[in-house]
Design a protein around this nucleic acid. Sequence first.
DNA 1: GAGAGAAGTGTACGTTGTACACCTTGGTTG
DNA 2: CAACCAAGGTGTACAACGTACACTTCTCTC
Lengths: 236, 236
Amino acid sequence: MSQQADATRRVRLNRDRVLDAAVALADQIGIDALSMRRLAQELAVVPMALYKHVGDKEDLLDGMVEQIIREIDDPVQDIDWKSALRLRVLSARSALQRHPWARQAIESRRNPTPAVLEYQDSIAEIFLTGGITPDLAHHAMHTLGGRMWGFTQELFDGSAGPEDETVPGIEAQAATIAHMVERYPHVVTIATATQHDEGSVVGHGCDDQFEFEFALDLLLDGFEQRHLRGWTSART
Amino acid sequence: MSQQADATRRVRLNRDRVLDAAVALADQIGIDALSMRRLAQELAVVPMALYKHVGDKEDLLDGMVEQIIREIDDPVQDIDWKSALRLRVLSARSALQRHPWARQAIESRRNPTPAVLEYQDSIAEIFLTGGITPDLAHHAMHTLGGRMWGFTQELFDGSAGPEDETVPGIEAQAATIAHMVERYPHVVTIATATQHDEGSVVGHGCDDQFEFEFALDLLLDGFEQRHLRGWTSART
DNA sequence: GAGAGAAGTGTACGTTGTACACCTTGGTTG
DNA sequence: CAACCAAGGTGTACAACGTACACTTCTCTC
């Protein structure tokens, strides 16, 4: 009886199983609620068992990020740099969008992990093989910033009202709106302007994807123009 | 003797004193190390005393953010929208730069506070009084994102090497570099290309301010071009 | 079957945010 | 001046966190 009689025999843990479970759990309960204890519980294991597979919580987060990056598609070959870049970024975006906590997790990492560097290298490669000078490519990558991961990087969230856990009554809501119009008239103008189009043919209100592509294309156009003009950081 | 004999009589706390102390402390030790207990200690008070002045830690952070926003200069009047916007953003940037933790703090807030909304409103106002359509202004603000606060929003940090707490020996350093060149050749090319200019006349290597203004101007140019072309979200 | 190394357990500690009951002020009012 | 009372400050306590350290138990190899 080297085999345990128990039918619900426990499968051995390993780093991948831990990371996958962590990713799945973060998808469910969010990254802030993810604790070593909660994760251990999910794996039907005592908290300290996890430390045989990850060094500490930082390492866990690093591993989770790598797991996500692995979901990004490989770069598309044999197209112009602008399209290649566009596709690559949008692919990263769609991968990261499946895990709402990923942005925060990636940003919180202090040192880039190999997978992160690899991804950045593939972006750099697209610029360089497209004929962009290292100088311009350098600044372009800085400019892309988080956007090269598909982050929208919003602070102005469209709705722009102080949201509460509790759903306000209709009259409280009206009062809030009236208050907003008085105090923040320009924000209200902008926030509501595009929402009028909502039902119309092709208007885009606060469509996250549209916002992202608007920004991305604006950046790519800017890079291209500077490239064609022979831009250099030396004369500015 | 209604006055206490003690010469080091304690001044009464109030919300502002608490927030100012919190900002100063965060400047010193960073936002992660800032705990209610540590802050209380700084104010020579028992931790729970703080809760008479702030609701909870979230409220403390909110208050700290408001304190910082108060440092941003008022908008400049009577200039074209592009310049006005540029100045306003750069002013925000310089204010936030005095407090390295501010970015994280602002981004972590769930609901915008009045001061945040006020600032956003002032940005919106610049667009609208400049004749930009609410539609375009809406998307422009989304595009600016964190950049309208002066955030650089980097992930690619220029140095791009896995930094360690411990300073590596010279041969370990060389090994790391060789390893980087092999694994991430394009990143290395880009990272080192502009550093060659370092000693030269007007080249800009990894100057954070330069990177920021490069991106900002690229965005502003993009907005302007779309504005002049009568851009609408309806036909894209 | 024995031995070894990896995997999992149990207990324990210091740190965190904050609830709750208490005491101590200092300004207002009789 | 004394009495009062809200606001400010204290002390104790608890649950949750990450993780160090010593232990038992599994699984694989000889």
